[in-house]
């Protein structure tokens, strides 16, 4: 009788262990994508996880693709990237992104405070002389 409990207990323990091991990996796995090579890795990771799903060249979300396409962003010229960053700041400041409607079905898509701050800092750019 006691043996019957032992097996499932072992299985659960095993599962817990596997979960514990795999958890440390996926964060780094996502970063490999081809978004803007000069983008800081922590920004890239957030974009990849929270924005890229709708904002990419193959997106089925036409509006999202039209407003911002990260694949296009990478290839576009400096002035265009600056314009896009300006619009990102605006959208983030207004709390427009990710859209509330989208978050209803996917609450885990919400930006954490830290992520929001990282994205804002990057898109607002550092206020230093462009000569540097």
């Amino acid at each position: 009788m006691k043996k019957l409990f032992f097996l499932p207990a072992l299985a659960i323990l095993g599962l817990l262990f596997i979960q514990g091991v795999t958890k440390s990996e996926p964060e780094t796995k996502f970063i490999s994508h081809e978004i803007a090579p000069d983008m800081p890795p922590q920004v890239k990771a957030i974009v990849e996880q929270k924005c890229y799903g709708c904002h990419n060249a193959e997106s089925k979300n036409e509006k999202g693709k039209k407003k911002l396409d990260w694949d296009e962003f990478e290839a576009s010229k400096k002035a265009k990237q600056m314009a896009t960053k300006g619009k990102i700041v605006e959208a983030l400041e207004n709390g427009d992104m990710p859209p509330a409607k989208f978050l209803e079905n996917k609450p885990e898509g919400k930006l954490t405070e830290g992520e929001l701050a990282t994205l804002m800092e990057w898109s607002a750019g550092k206020k230093k002389s462009p000569k540097e």
Partner: peptide, 14 residues
């Protein structure tokens, strides 16, 4: 400001 102008020009283009 510059960023706002860039945004407008980008929008005009599209």
């Amino acid at each position: 400001d510059m960023i706002k102008k860039l945004g407008y020009l980008d929008d005009i283009s599209s």
